[in-house]
């Protein structure tokens, strides 16, 4: 049987080098509501145009996770900070890159604190 092995000694994705104060989950919610909710929110029109089932990000994650994990990001309890940062700064599929003039480094730390507030 063919197997591919991935070895990684360390995660090397960027860390919060510039965060001076400890991140605020409360402010993270404010930033999330402004920048993320229009695609990743829980409340959507009942029949989205073009057949989507919910807001674009929520609908896409619903298809991806098939009910095994919550499609609404705010309900997740397992998100890795590095993954959130990678997706926000790198984009993923139709979701484009978000610049630091839009969501600053400290605001991103706050969003991460908000989305990981219930992590195990």
């Amino acid at each position: 049987m063919r197997v591919t092995i991935v070895m990684a000694a360390l995660a090397v994705l960027a860390t919060a080098a510039f965060a001076q104060d400890s991140p605020s989950a409360d402010n993270g919610k404010v930033v999330f509501d402004k920048w993320c909710t229009p695609c990743h929110g829980a409340v959507a029109p009942p029949e989205m145009p073009f057949g989507g089932d919910g807001l674009p990000g929520t609908s896409a994650l619903g298809v991806k996770y098939r009910g095994e994990l919550p499609a609404v990001l705010e309900e997740r309890t397992d998100l890795a900070p590095e993954f959130i940062e990678t997706v926000v700064r790198g984009g993923l599929f139709g979701m484009p890159i978000t610049r630091k003039t839009e969501v600053s480094e400290s605001e991103l730390e706050d969003v991460i604190a908000y989305l990981t507030r219930n992590n195990n």
Binding site: G52, P56, S59, V63, K64
Partner: peptide
Amino acid sequence: ALEIFATMARNPQTNEAPLEG
């Protein structure tokens, strides 16, 4: 709104290769 992005978001037909742009 950003609801127009539902047109390109992953859906059951494009699950393995959603549009990237």
